[in-house]
Design a binder for these strands. Structure first.
Length: 259
DNA sequence: ATGGTTGCGCTGCAA
């Protein structure tokens, strides 16, 4: 099973890039974030035409998530079910080919002194509680998406300078670590331990960021142990960031030896 | 690089 995640930064602006990538790479599951479109305007037909099911939940202008899959997704649920703000445009879960998949667009947080940053920290705590409620670390489970956190110093281009950035803040890293402790393995790091300058996001505002290696590894594919043991490889498709009208993120891919 | 770019949807906001 081949799975991938991509923050598209508008599914409508990135439609051709995405469809071409899918036809070339033929993933079984592809999770999207920042689709930036309300459900009534989501371009579902093009995905169906190339042989994929697509489920999505979005809103006007910001956020929005979707999952494309070869097999029909089962048990599709949007948002949190803990009685708080469901935040449906940031969280989709489903069971695909018998494996539960959770796709998240974790809130960015804007700045460390902002209420939005507190919301981000709470959001990650709520997500751990959701994993505790619905899943077991002893069973196969995939968590993938834009986590908006670079876990370790090796995952950013300048860890000293970026320590107060919301995507590399000690509190954000600790909040993500709390979720990881529940029972996840970062399958990219599993296959590329200590490999530096492996990024999935480069800010549009930084000129020649890709060439200058000014990036962040904030998109992730994490699996529970029994599934991680079956992971045969993981990689970042840097070429897709060199496309004509690229997203500011790129595709992260992983393969598993399961049917 | 306390600058810069992109997308949405119409004016400035989010990232």
């Amino acid at each position: 099973m081949k799975v991938a995640t991509f923050n598209v930064n508008s599914i409508r602006s990135r439609l051709e890039l995405v469809l071409q990538w899918m036809q070339r790479e033929s993933p079984d599951v592809l999770c999207f974030q920042e689709t930036k479109v309300q459900d009534a305007d989501f371009p579902a037909a093009p995905f169906e035409e190339i042989g994929y099911h697509i489920v999505f939940r979005g809103q006007k202008a910001y956020a929005g998530v979707a999952i494309a899959s070869r097999e029909e997704p089962q048990e599709v649920v949007f948002g949190f079910d803990d009685g708080g703000e469901p935040d449906e445009a940031r969280l989709i879960r489903a069971v695909i080919g018998g494996i539960p998949v959770v796709n998240t667009y974790v809130p960015q947080g804007r700045s460390p002194d902002s209420p939005h940053f507190q919301y981000k920290l709470e959001w990650l705590a709520r997500l751990r509680a959701l994993f505790e409620r619905h899943y077991s670390p002893q069973d196969p489970l995939l968590w993938m998406g834009d986590f908006n956190v670079a876990p370790e110093p090796i995952d950013v281009h300048d860890p000293k300078r970026l320590k107060d950035h919301v995507d590399f803040h000690p509190e954000a890293r600790a909040a993500l670590e709390r979720v990881r402790e529940w029972g996840f393995v970062d399958v990219f790091r599993l296959h590329h331990p200590q490999e530096a300058e492996q990024y999935t996001f480069w800010d549009y505002r930084v000129r020649n960021a890709l060439e200058r290696k000014i990036g962040w590894r904030v998109d992730h594919i994490w699996a529970t142990e029994p599934l991680a043991r079956q992971c045969t490889g993981a990689w970042i498709d840097v070429e897709a960031r060199r496309a004509e009208r690229p997203s500011d993120h790129t595709f992260l891919v992983a393969e598993f030896a399961v049917d």
